[in-house]
Design a binder for these strands. Sequence first.
DNA 1: GGAAGTAAATTCACTATGCAGTATACTTTG
DNA 2: CAAAGTATACTGCATAGTGAATTTACTTCC
Lengths: 214, 214
Amino acid sequence: MPRSADLTRKCILEAAYRLFRRQGYSRVSMDEIAAAARLTKRTLYYHFRSKDDLLARVLEAQHELALQAFQSFADQMTGSAEAIVEAMFRELAVWVDKPRWAGSGFTRLVIELADLPGHPARTIARRHKAQLERSLADLLGRAGIERKEELAREIWLLSEGAISLILVHGDRGYSAAAMRAARTLVRHHTEVPASTRTKRRYVQRRPSRTALAS
Amino acid sequence: MPRSADLTRKCILEAAYRLFRRQGYSRVSMDEIAAAARLTKRTLYYHFRSKDDLLARVLEAQHELALQAFQSFADQMTGSAEAIVEAMFRELAVWVDKPRWAGSGFTRLVIELADLPGHPARTIARRHKAQLERSLADLLGRAGIERKEELAREIWLLSEGAISLILVHGDRGYSAAAMRAARTLVRHHTEVPASTRTKRRYVQRRPSRTALAS
DNA sequence: GGAAGTAAATTCACTATGCAGTATACTTTG
DNA sequence: CAAAGTATACTGCATAGTGAATTTACTTCC
């Protein structure tokens, strides 16, 4: 067998991920990927059935890497929940500050395919986000948070929101705001044990239907 | 002059928005838009210079509508900040529950064009989000919040995060989590006037660089 | 009132290009 | 040699954008 197939596949996956992450799915052609991987298109189709298949495999590979990275981050973290969350958002700030940053690969690709619920890439992305959220919850649990799932989800919301808004505005200040909000939420979860949470709220007169339909 | 041009333009804009919102930018063809508007493609090019131009105009039009909708929502709101924010997230929950919902048109389109900072659509979307954030801050200010810009930004982060995650997961539960978090943040901003906010935090040993690079 | 003029609005038919995917032949290595 | 891997050259289709004719409704002048 000439030129180990594994190497070729890895090379293709990496080149494809770089392009997909920067330019999304449909705006990247198989020819471009082939060129970036220094191969011909035909070789791509030898290793992957189709463009959609390639995307799915790319996301799978990135899922592994990201999960590993998060685990190694989590393993280093032993302090308070507040310290953990601060470290997370510091990482986020560093990450989004990269010069040609163009959003989370997963989020970006899934949003592009938002109207194709059956697409394999979506399934993988869903699993990915779910698993990361669970890992964060575990980490928070180890730091003594009681309602760890709740907090993890809230933190995750802030992080995704920051990514999205930084992308829209180009204003990196959102990561600072997210960190500040996250700090508040963590404190609330540590200081207030588990009560005064689901109090009945009074309701304003019925609001217009489309206020947020932006 | 045959068939008032204004009407035709409106019709095109509406058809284009419906398609763009559902399927994104690149996966919608001018032919499809023309068909949806019951016109020929050539007519589209009579009214709009290019596909990119059309997109920009579509977003401009939606900007007007969304802003108006938010204002009419804001004008009805007179209660406490907490009530306002709750109403907002209730709206969000209703909105994302629409059967064929596929994300905020703005967010979705801007993310698709994330690597094209010069695109006119991006400029418009940026202005849009900024203006809505400012309107929310005003509303919160009127409800007695002191650091209204801070809170508005935090709320906005939660809302964008929810949209993004609901899109990825298909799990509408995120809007409930966002509302819960928002409630916490509002309370923090009302109960704690404006202190104990920027305390020095202790730092964990340096975290790995790529933990969040998903 | 109506014919003729006119410019806006719209259509049909077309070009050119880009792209996913393929048929087939060649090359490398065990 | 044989099988895994790679390259050249191609098909067919979708799509952004265009050239030129044609229709439409409003104005002007008799």
